[in-house]
Design a protein around this nucleic acid. Structure first.
Lengths: 233, 233
DNA sequence: AAGTGGTCTAGACCACAAA
DNA sequence: TTGTGGTCTAGACCACTTG
């Protein structure tokens, strides 16, 4: 183990030791300096490798506490949330967008679990239909903080989805995925039978942790039958 | 901008320039050496910052080609795939596991799109039911490469899910999420009405890119009604 | 051929948490 | 208090790609 040691090879070596129980789950492994000496590389290289494994959930690292093999290795998948239009175009279709509804509502008139309590007084609600080659693709139901998107922001042709991604990046929020049965209204918009199982993606976006902006938007995307979220591991 | 510049502050400065269109979308930004000089820090620090933004999807970097602001910023969500038992326990329930079926099948008898063509001659099929406090939680339908999990690996009490995560980590694969309507058999196992919308998670796992092992496993997890995948952004 | 990102090194200082 | 990870620096070489 002399000469050039890539951080990947250090990572693979560590991985091997975890798999072969040389470093059993829960135990503490040698510190960076020791590993660097043993493997004949700089500590920074070991750091990069172990940080990568920690990011992957296989190691737990703490200052002063050292590095331990995670008792419960966790699989993590990164999945990219595409702009809907691009998602459609990437599938080789022509993207269409129809604004169905756009109005301001006061909080007292709203009863939707997706809307936070500590948000602004009024909210802008936008509903739109995304289509692929004139076939319904996805129904978008969005709540917007009017302070972020003033009423003169026209969403007649530009998807709010698209506008957002270009405007407020690096925001915090939650994402959840579920399944619902198509109701009558949804079935009509998506051109499917009532009762069909549909994939639903809900996302809430807040201003960055350090920032001053609070609630930005909450959106529910109801996809047409057969839609799948896909990602590589 | 003298003295100690953390890579986070460099990242934030770059982020600011992207948001304020100082670096418009699609344009090429100064190279690392120039930024390091301008901000008064080491190139490695700039590298760490820009790499972070590239990982987040806001920048695109290529050797020799330089760094560009992504035309289409992509939102990425990291979502952790828990071991089902832990998922259940984290919700405050007691996890149960029942093996429904475990047999070897030859490829010629199999007609399931989830199974790859270039896999092994025979496959082990395991079906099991996960429960939370005696309530059905998730139906597991798994195909296993028998070379990886020899028949003497007993899955009567240990979930294959759990065994896998502890055994073959850092593998490659794909993950997809969709929705289905409960058929009669599924409805019976999950104790719900036929036709109920259910969330389905399918995962295929192959050996690491560099490794010799091919197909490892493919699994279809059908969750009980109401289950949602959740993650922070 | 040459420019740009990717990474390694050796050394240093700091921040955090455990003893 | 003190050990361990987190990070910064200055310099160097390499790898990929584009002109």
């Amino acid at each position: 183990m002399q000469g050039r040691m890539s951080w990947q090879s250090v990572r693979d070596e560590a991985l091997h030791r975890i798999h072969s129980q040389i470093w059993p789950a829960g135990t503490r492994i040698p510190d960076e300096a020791a590993l660097a000496a043993e493997l004949g590389c700089a500590r920074a290289t070991v750091n990069r490798a172990l940080r990568d494994l920690a990011d992957a959930g296989l190691l737990e690292r703490r200052r002063r506490g050292g590095t331990r093999v995670a008792l419960t290795p966790v699989r993590k998948a990164v999945f990219t949330i595409p702009i809907i239009r691009q998602d459609i175009e990437a599938r080789g279709h022509t993207a269409g967008y129809t604004l169905l509804d756009d109005r301001l509502l006061s909080m007292s008139d709203i009863s939707d679990a997706a809307v936070p309590e500590n948000g602004p007084e009024t909210l802008r609600r936008i509903r739109a239909l995304h289509s692929a080659d004139d076939t319904a693709f996805c129904l978008e139901d969005r709540w917007l903080n009017p302070k972020i998107a003033p009423p003169d922001t026209g969403f007649e042709t530009l998807s709010a989805n698209e506008w957002l991604v270009r405007t407020v990046n690096y925001a915090a929020g939650e994402l959840s995925v579920g399944a619902i049965s198509a109701g009558l209204s949804i079935a009509r918009h998506l051109n499917c039978e009532p009762g069909t199982a549909l994939l639903v993606l809900e996302r809430t976006t807040r201003g960055p942790a350090g920032g001053t902006t609070g609630f930005i938007t909450a959106v529910r995307l109801i996809y047409a039958p057969g839609y799948r979220i896909q990602t590589a591991l």
